[in-house]
Computed example of a mutant assay.
Amino acid sequence: MSAHLPPIKGRGAPLNRESARFNLPVREADGDWLDQRAAIDDSPAPLRTTVTIEHPRSIISRNSSPDLPFDQSINAYRGCEHGCIYCYARPTHAWLDLSPGLDFESRLFAKPDAAKLLRATLRKPGYVPKVIALGTNTDPYQPIEADYRITRSILEVCLEARHPVSITTKSDRVLSDIDLLAEMARYDLVAIALSVTTLDSAMARTLEPRAATPRKRLAAIRALSKAGVPTHINVSPVIPAITDHEIEALVAAGAEAGALSASYIPVRLPHEVAPLFRAWLDAHFPDRASKVMAIIQQMRDGRDNDPDFGSRMRGKGPWADLIRTRFRLAVKRAGLNQHKWVLDTSHFRAPADGTQGELF
């Protein structure tokens, strides 16, 4: 089926296959797109983005994964309009009875109560401050942040409470909050990682169709660094036979822009991501699709994905070793990773409860 699917302009996934894990049916993209499909003679209408408001009872997610550098995080949004075909978070949409394919990048959920819930959590007796990671599942600066400003409201609470935050993003929209970020940096409360997968803008349009261009991401690193905000370049994911030839150039570009450190992760294809990625390869790189998957499987114990702690972030075998060696040498040449990021929790203070009475 996927071998003959054409790319959908402006979207990452070429199909909307549902999750077999939850006995959900296979269906194509629905809504306005299907309504209009039978009524036109040309290509289908663009898939419209919708946003549903969500009101969770809590906002901080916690994990105990030994290979993650944080144990608590906040996700202001579910789904991500950037449409990165390789996104490991895609399978989370299956829990909502939605497709990890096109639904993940077009049927989004926003949590406007996030700052209010965070404020209440930070005020609880006995709360122990630890770094809160933003952008661990879906991007906190995806396009809808321009309207909802949920990420900014979270940062406002964290600045007031002197609570440390780490941010991972693919968007130069992070610069809209540079006033808050620069102030937080004065207290060692923030560090920001910009993920840059490729320097080729045409490649980026197919991999990450609605994310900021590589040039804009590097410009964001430069602007943040100039403002005194510690920045990091995340060369992730590294896709063999697609982007791996850029490792050295990406590390050098990040260093030139002012990044202090760099990291990488080989592409991961958990659950429904694997068939979506295969369909993307068939649509965009049919000449090397089998080669790419063969190399990925060599790094993943013969499977499309390795879920084991530790190895899932680095891969195994000769290809993984080669990528690791090349990256280490590139970092050394660029003079990066000379010191470890340490965010300060000692300035923490419980925030006000947000009521007028706190003013008197």
Rank of each mutant, 00 (worst) to 15 (best):
W341P: 09
G83Y: 06
K170F: 07
T49H: 10
H55K: 14
E248P: 00
T169V: 02
G310R: 00
S290M: 03
I144H: 13
P66R: 13
R162T: 09
E54D: 09
T213W: 05
A274Q: 11
A241E: 08
D179L: 07
D344H: 11
V165W: 04
K116Q: 08
N137D: 10
Y77F: 15
L336M: 02
G228R: 09
L343T: 10
H347V: 07
V342E: 14
M1V: 14
R162S: 15
W280M: 00
I233T: 15
H347Y: 12
H4M: 10
S263Y: 07
P270W: 09
E145R: 08
R57S: 13
V128P: 02
L199T: 09
A257C: 07
A202G: 06
P91F: 08
R333M: 04
A115Q: 08
K130Q: 14
A76D: 05
P275D: 05
F104T: 06
H163Q: 06
A249K: 04
D287K: 12
G317R: 04
I150H: 11
I74H: 03
E105L: 04
H55Y: 11
H271P: 04
K291D: 14
C158S: 14
A289F: 01
K124S: 13
A241R: 14
H4I: 12
F277P: 12
K170V: 09
E81G: 10
R107C: 06
L281M: 03
D147I: 08
V131E: 13
P56F: 00
I233Y: 10
A182R: 06
S171I: 05
R21H: 09
R349M: 14
L108E: 07
A94M: 04
G357R: 14
H245G: 11
A114P: 12
